[in-house]
Design a protein around this nucleic acid. Sequence first.
DNA 1: TTGTTATTGAAAATCATTTTCATTAATATT
DNA 2: AATATTAATGAAAATGATTTTCAATAACAA
Lengths: 159, 159
Amino acid sequence: MHGRCQRGPSWWQGKFRGCGYRFTVPRMAILDVLNITSGHLSAEDIYMNVHKDYPNVGLTTVYRTLELLVQMELVVRSDFGDGRARYELNQGPKGERHHHHHLVCTNCGRVIDYTDFIKDEIELLQRTEKGLSKKYNFKIDSHIIQFYGLCEKCRRKGK
Amino acid sequence: MHGRCQRGPSWWQGKFRGCGYRFTVPRMAILDVLNITSGHLSAEDIYMNVHKDYPNVGLTTVYRTLELLVQMELVVRSDFGDGRARYELNQGPKGERHHHHHLVCTNCGRVIDYTDFIKDEIELLQRTEKGLSKKYNFKIDSHIIQFYGLCEKCRRKGK
DNA sequence: TTGTTATTGAAAATCATTTTCATTAATATT
DNA sequence: AATATTAATGAAAATGATTTTCAATAACAA
Ligand SMILES: [Mn+2]
Ligand SMILES: [Mn+2]
Ligand SMILES: [Zn+2]
Ligand SMILES: [Zn+2]
């Protein structure tokens, strides 16, 4: 009863080593926090969580590791307009990719992931991408879609 | 031959006064720069342009004015991931609103406005918004869509 | 076990934006 | 036109997230 976990330490280690990077304690700890915690964490959030178990891991290392993880496409970095970057793992516990978009509450800052309508979206996006690359000769690699408004809680409180 | 210009100094003045704000020289100068210049300007860009004609207008005032203009919805503020906010007038010289989205070159930073496919987009967005507000009870006010990739020039140089 | 060097942590630097506060100027009032 | 009121301004300092520097450390190939 140990050999399960499709995306765990050993998988990450392989990924790191495969890219020629060392698999260090701080990197492991940071991935662990991202894996366990749900939501959209700031560097500071991650630092504080890592700090509980590894008090000598520095904030600088958190920033550096996140940069690396984003570059390796293990982590997605988002900006929701509050002045700090947010990070989340690019795959679920079983390794499924979770391409999704965001609803951002302009009152309380809450961020909701959604994957609904992705089907329709993909269809439109493909048409759009095709048209845009033709018209502007622009090669599209990725996109972001964010909806801004009021979350349930903030609506009730009548903002 | 002066009485033309649907969105000029006098219109802005009215807008300001109507909101209880004073129409000052720096505010006028900043709007002027935004009106004349096309593209997505940073606060610094605007400051430098204003500075040519009004060397005693400070950067602080540029920031404060932009904040006000965004709040008044005369100006749109965007973030293209280069660490500084970008601003553009929310309406063309004739007052038409220009709801549009952006293509952002991840190599050179160029930003292209596009309004193509907006029809299709609006349709999808409306369906999505309806679905999302029902499912998450989220009241959507606005959205952003950005495509990232390589612009024509950068494609040629083979990045 | 040892050598090589990628990685780390602390402190300092950067840089966009915000705050502070005394001065100035837009506009309502006389 | 002159004056009073106070919103707006500019310079300097503060802020806060992120990056850089550099000497010490620890992965890991040999
Ligand atoms: Mn998310
Ligand atoms: Mn634009
Ligand atoms: Zn909310
Ligand atoms: Zn480019």
